[in-house]
Design a protein around this nucleic acid. Structure first.
Lengths: 255, 255
DNA sequence: AGCCTAATGCTGTCTAGACAAGTATCTCCT
DNA sequence: AGGAGATACTTGTCTAGACAGCATTAGGCT
């Protein structure tokens, strides 16, 4: 358990275990920070950091000068930094599937192309393109198109797309995404896409446009088309600033 | 400028000003944390906290043992904890408008009602209901329905909905939301809603279901229907854990 | 009894210092 | 000249202690 990844993570795990195993009722008060510091033989700042993590997860909340309390159960509080489709389907207990529609290396010549713009490339740059139909079980769920800058992934095609996720391959090249910006909008399907998703033309769908960054550099531009009848997105958002860091919002995909 | 809201916020503001006013190029290295500590006469921990905030905003990124760097410009990095429709429209420079469709106090008798479930109430509880058509400029943008538990806002109707936002009124009762969970899905409009939004039946729309919390207690259940041709949602998501708190994802509404 | 005030304890913020782990650079040796 | 190792610097983590602001509680006064 206690890896060297940080004491505060161990303390957070311990407190989380206490909360779920003892099944503490919502709004039960936790021991005070000084008490927790004694219990875990750590400085109060370290305890606070652990509590901040739990608060970000939505497991506890705090009231100034009163204490920290167990929060009311919400939806799947523990999924936090899930991003990959594969990871998510595994978590959901569904078998992730994939059908390649198109792959290859393209040279983007149109200087107005959003691919160039979002990846920060100049006209004429080469990009890797993957277009897949993603399945959950046997049902088609998403049409996923992603573009990666070729310069950063020169030996991308050496890897096996069937056995590894795109994010895994990106990680092996030292450019695993650390954060991303997505825009979500509602569209109706055209004839081609509807056919792929086994729906009728005009059915509602979610169009998600994502730019993912590693060390401040854009490394992925993606457009996903989720079928609207099987997909919801869940977003957690904060309003106030609390505890340690400024702001905290979890997020992830839901079926 | 320098309110007593926290030194680290002042330092964050100062560094942010330096970055935007001097128009530092992306990937320019900032002074090291000890240097910044000397410059702002603060402890390194305080400087780190300011840097963490800027990192959460997407303005800078850091590489271990190397330094902190100016990030590439992204989309509207500074809007973080915007939530209220009114605030957002003001920010956008559009005049927020409102047309009341329905208001009143309801007694919810159906024990299966999602309103009861999400607000943590028992059958028979009373809720305040507001249903409005929200306008940006002169165009209808959203059909917004919200339910609040009456027990926590007994004198809600004394306030003037025309001059204050719902969140302002909630704040005056001591229950300003601090965080929320939203689900976003794609739907097509039925005849009634399409007419309100001045669209044709079957047009795409985003349906957002939100539960907002104050001090760990649910205080708002809302369903918003955004017209799909004028609305995108932007979400920022993090994968790794960095710097101070666990993880950080900003989020907000975009037109 | 009821009200006001002071004491207490808690979270929130900040300081000053230390060590660990990683990167970049410089120096020395071959 | 080129490579390898030592070194200095940077971020990341942690400690111990201090003070401020706030909420609750207990005590004392009317």
């Amino acid at each position: 358990m206690s890896k060297n990844a940080g004491v505060y993570l161990d303390i957070a795990d311990a407190i989380r275990r206490d909360i779920v195993s003892q099944e503490l009722a919502p709004h039960t008060r936790l021991p005070s920070e000084p008490e927790l510091a004694v219990k875990y033989r750590a400085a109060r700042a370290t305890v606070r950091r652990a509590l901040a993590k739990l608060q970000d997860e939505g497991l506890i909340y705090s009231r100034q000068a009163v204490g920290s309390f167990v929060a009311e159960p919400r939806v799947e509080q523990d999924l936090d930094h899930l991003t990959s489709f594969t990871e998510f389907m595994v978590y959901r207990g569904m078998k992730p599937g994939s059908r390649l529609i198109e792959t290859g290396t393209q040279e983007v010549t149109d200087p107005e192309s959003p691919i160039l713009h979002y990846l920060g490339l100049r006209a004429g740059a080469k990009v890797l393109h993957i277009r897949r139909l993603r399945l959950g079980g046997r049902e088609p769920l998403v049409i996923a198109s992603t573009w990666l800058p070729e310069a950063r992934f020169p030996d991308f095609w050496q890897h096996d797309l069937a056995s590894k996720s795109v994010y895994e391959i990106m990680g092996e090249s030292g450019h695993k995404p650390t954060d991303a910006i997505q825009t979500i909008e509602s569209v109706t399907l055209n004839e081609v896409d509807a056919k792929l998703l086994a729906l009728s033309t005009g059915a509602p769908a979610l169009r998600i446009c994502r730019v993912a960054y590693a060390s401040g550099l854009p490394v992925e531009y993606a457009i996903d088309l989720y079928r609207g009848d099987r997909t919801k997105f869940r977003v957690r958002l904060g309003v106030l600033e609390k505890r340690l860091s400024a702001q905290i919002h979890s997020e992830q995909i839901a079926i």
